[in-house]
Design a protein around this nucleic acid. Structure first.
Lengths: 404, 404
DNA sequence: TTCTTTTCGTTCGGTCTCTTGACGAATTAA
DNA sequence: TTAATTCGTCAAGAGACCGAACGAAAAGAA
């Protein structure tokens, strides 16, 4: 429940590998843990004793059926710590709760409070509290919270810099306010990035290291996962492919605020193009897609052009970062018919074929990704090793006249 | 000279941090090392004794002028190990030698043996051997070799998959053959990636974490450095921006083999466009750029268009990965007049301005980057800690019906 | 039912590494 | 020549690891 006391680096490394083994192979006995981690039985008993005393681990029965003495089996206890994932969308607010072992305990969602700003934050606090209590978890037991939000999140300050879809959120200190309301540290991350991480953890991109996630819905966005990490960009603006110079003249004044590509294939762009081509009586991009499927020729050509531009964007991403897998997501991108069109066009555009899948988590992707990051942070808080800097920094160039 | 014997993890961590301090602050006394690393004087003496016995470290005089007893100063000894960097270009072959402290001891270059293949490898071996002997280093002391090569290097096998510019290289087992000739393990890496790392280590991007390197010369290519690591891509094909759908119809048959963008702004593309516009008597893209500067209006418009397409490619990269710094390199890209044009155009294309610099290492960038990787590998061989995996892997989704 | 075999988990002794404190050695400042 | 200061070693003790030995507990065989 509280982070394990740090003693020596050696012991911390042992704890860490015991925890890792518990994560992936519980329930498991101390004897097996010792084999898996190649620590001695002695050390193992010490570590497990400490874990049990902290409430991180609990015994669950004994082995049966094997020759020899039975062994006590242990698993990670739900009391060990909880994490909360939040997806704050323009339409829907989703919240999910998981324990330290990554078991998803509960999810809940509501329509987002349309008044935005502080009201939305209050709503989040209410919903989170209810979720915790319904699962017999005191909210104070939650040790790590991650929230998905549309717009750009500054990777250094963690603040929202541009949230076009939710009113009055970009001038609030969301991290501070929400942290206070919920009583635990809150971290924000872009919703598309988290949807990508969701698909990597529980979705269609499980265990793939090198993934691009192209989201097409009300807007267009990209998430990149490379070398096992998210690509955030210096300002958190990586993946803002609405600004790609595709689908029109990037210098044209009308399209500059949203970006050239978004102007064409964002929801309002699709509707606008349908109207310009003579289509009538539409409000949402969804109607255009539905009509195309129902045989409306004008709608079909708008959809075709949307798919063409999406394929160009995908080809751009593929040429730039060479992913192993391209995931199509978002309310439009995940439509099977649309994804097929894009895949077909892409075959002609890209020198080497790339596997394409559609999101299987759909609207849940963001909240699942938020959980995965919250979980990572909790694990790092408990079992991180400070000394574990990646690589040694190289020395700077020799100063002129320095000693040989 | 040989890797330090591994004993306990704790001791390896101590050695590692002592070495890091030596890298950045030598010459330095044991007393100061103890302060910097926050190890005890006792431990420090033990570690330094061991280092000295291995030949990794040597005493260089004593402190002077301070109150109290003088201290023995130590520095990393050049005998501690050497690394070799190689840049195999279509025109020139460059080789450089450095010691374990990152001091560049010597460089040499020659015109590449035009017969390619095995001849080029022999030439590399000859030049490397000479470089080592001229610096009183027996070639067997070299413990790590990295070579820059044009084309795509498979990140898993380390083999060259596509080397259009050097004949007969893509069907050779370069890693194996060269490793045998030189007597040390050889690692290959794409030349643009290494030029980028060169600029990050010794060039215009020193200590910047988030860098895009756009190279324009005979071809066009991109290197990306994100989260402190190179972006290689699943097949080593990240940065192959010749295939970006910019500057023409990407489906057009004529441009498909090299890629749409490369067809326009690669060297042959520039020359072709100049001829198509009525220009005469040119062989190389360099002449076109020189004539533009000399006042040739046709050449100027070709250059202008080249700059425009380059700026579009840059805007694409910026929207996708949001780098802190964009470096322009390659024989064309590094020209100040050309870089200025690109920077001006980019201001109008990109929603947020990004700093632009031109390569300052020029042709040396590749070999310097090769040295930096070779050095990193040597350091990791000596002072890596296996237990230091980045983060704990998350558990997979719960199987249906698994124990609660 | 009893004995044998196998495995679990604890106890004990020994090793490695790190730290602290004490102390002699070496140097500057008074 | 003495005092102050810093360096570097020595010795003692603590934390963490491992392997060996051993009792405990279960399954299987007689």
């Amino acid at each position: 429940m509280s982070p394990p006391p740090i003693t020596s680096v050696t012991r911390q490394l042992s704890r860490r590998s015991v925890f890792e083994a518990l994560l992936h192979r519980s329930p498991i006995s101390r004897a097996d843990l010792a084999k898996v981690t190649s620590l001695s039985k002695q050390t193992m008993s010490e570590v497990i004793d400490a874990f049990e005393q902290q409430g991180l681990v609990r015994p669950v029965g004994r082995t049966r059926g094997n020759v020899g003495r039975t062994a006590v089996l242990y698993e990670l206890s739900p009391e060990g710590g909880h994490v909360l994932g939040i997806d704050l969308g323009a339409q829907r607010l989703t919240v999910a709760l998981a324990d330290i072992a990554g078991r998803v305990l509960a999810e809940a969602d509501e329509a987002t409070d349309g008044r935005g700003g502080g009201w939305a934050l209050d709503q989040i606090a209410r919903l989170s509290d209810r979720l915790a209590r319904d699962n017999h978890t005191h909210p104070s037991r939650i040790r790590s919270i991650v929230m998905a939000t549309p717009g750009v999140v500054n990777p250094r300050s963690g603040a929202i810099e541009l949230a076009p879809n939710i009113t009055g959120l970009d001038h609030l200190n969301v991290v501070g306010l929400l942290g206070e309301k919920l009583g635990s540290p809150v971290v924000l991350e872009n919703d598309i990035n988290l949807a990508l991480l969701g698909e990597i953890w529980h979705g269609c991109a499980r265990n793939v290291d090198n993934v691009a996630f192209l989201a097409l819905g009300s807007g267009v966005g990209l998430g990149l996962h490379v070398n096992g990490r998210l690509v955030r960009g210096e300002n958190g603006a990586a993946g803002e492919i609405g600004y790609l110079p595709i689908g029109g003249d990037p210098l044209q004044a009308e399209s500059r605020p949203q970006g050239c590509l978004e102007y064409q294939i964002g929801a309002t762009g699709v509707v606008r193009r349908y109207r310009e081509a003579g289509g009538r009586d539409v409000e949402t991009e969804r109607q255009v897609f539905d009509r195309a499927q129902a045989g409306d020729a004008v709608a079909a050509s708008v959809v075709e052009e949307t798919a063409r531009l999406t394929a160009l964007a995908a080809a751009t991403v593929i040429a730039t970062v060479d992913p192993q897998l391209l995931v199509l997501g978002g309310s439009v991108g995940a439509r099977a018919d649309f994804a097929d069109k894009v895949a077909r066009l892409l075959l002609q555009l890209s020198p080497r074929p790339v596997e394409i899948r559609t999101s299987i988590l759909g609207r849940r992707a963001g909240v699942v990704g938020a959980l995965s990051v919250a979980l990572r942070r909790l694990h790092d808080e408990f079992f991180g090793v400070a000394e574990l800097a990646a690589t040694l920094p190289l020395p700077p160039p020799a100063r002129r006249g320095a000693s040989q």
